[in-house]
């Protein structure tokens, strides 16, 4: 009996790693080819090289894209985290008719296709007389990542006992003060984690950035244009760098969420 169980266990174990392998296979291939000296993305593997990495580092267009992406993503995640903090506070601490519907409204950007957000924002903002630019990208991407930030923070806030704040009020603290002195420190790790998570989402985001932008490029846009204009092996190197950064940030965020 035990024997058949352990066989089943092992099978599931193998299946698990097989699925993980399938998911990560393209990325593994990309990482391997980023060190391949051949100009073409085909086997066999030629010589080991770090040339593509040098090319990327010395390519001003990649650097420009990277800088834009970093600045925009930083602004987006900062904006989204701060707004989401207040938003989550009011959602968690209030009880009014229609709260669950409003809650849903806050979360819809998560399920609406990105392309719709991109198009509608482009049309709306152009009609208002705004030129597509990185500022608009910042606004658009903030809308895109806000639901995530609200979800994370309200999840944490609903775990904080209500009577912590009540004790502070009874000692003479105003509501604003208790929000900053009691709730904010209790959300410390979640705030950092939310910042990192929204950062990685904004950093990878392509559709909104493409629709709300005229001439400035972000890193995902640069990668896309290099692919359209013909294959450049340096893409593998860029992809590897982005993947490793995202992985590190994502894991850090996960660890911070676990710390509360």
């Amino acid at each position: 009996m035990n024997n058949s169980k352990s066989i089943l266990n092992n099978l599931l174990y193998i299946l698990f790693f097989f699925i993980i392998f399938i998911i990560y296979l393209p990325i593994i291939v990309m990482i391997i080819f980023s060190f391949n000296s051949s100009k073409y993305q085909i086997m066999p593997f030629r010589d080991f090289t770090t040339e593509w990495y040098y090319r990327v580092i010395n390519d001003t267009q990649y650097l420009e894209g990277l800088t834009n992406s970093l600045v925009v993503s930083f602004t987006v995640s900062l904006l989204a985290t701060i707004l989401a903090f207040f938003c989550a506070y009011s959602l968690v601490n209030s009880n009014f008719r229609g709260k669950s519907i409003l809650n849903l409204f806050f979360l819809t950007p998560l399920v609406v296709p990105l392309i719709l957000i991109g198009i509608s924002l482009r049309f709306y903002l152009s009609a208002q007389g705004y030129e597509p630019s990185l500022y608009l990208v910042t606004i658009g991407q903030s809308i895109f990542v806000m639901p995530l930030a609200i979800l994370n923070l309200s999840n944490r806030m609903s775990q904080i006992p209500k009577n912590l704040e009540e004790a502070a009020w009874s000692l003479g603290s105003s509501r604003i003060r208790s929000m900053f002195e009691i709730i904010l420190p209790s959300c410390k790790f979640s705030l950092i984690a939310t910042f990192i998570l929204t950062f990685t989402f904004a950093f990878d985001e392509f559709i909104i950035a493409y629709f709300l932008n005229n001439f400035s490029i972000t890193l995902p846009i640069k990668i896309w244009t290099s692919l359209v204009t013909g294959f450049d092996p340096a893409i593998n190197a860029v992809g590897t760098l982005v993947f490793l950064t995202s992985l590190t940030l994502g894991l850090t965020a996960q660890l911070l969420f676990m710390k509360k």
Binding site: E166, A167, S170, G172
Partner: peptide
């Protein structure tokens, strides 16, 4: 509550 001359102590103490 913050303007009332009362102070409340809870069962689980609610220490910060």
């Amino acid at each position: 509550p913050n303007k009332r001359d009362t102070s409340i102590m809870f069962q689980d103490y609610a220490l910060f």
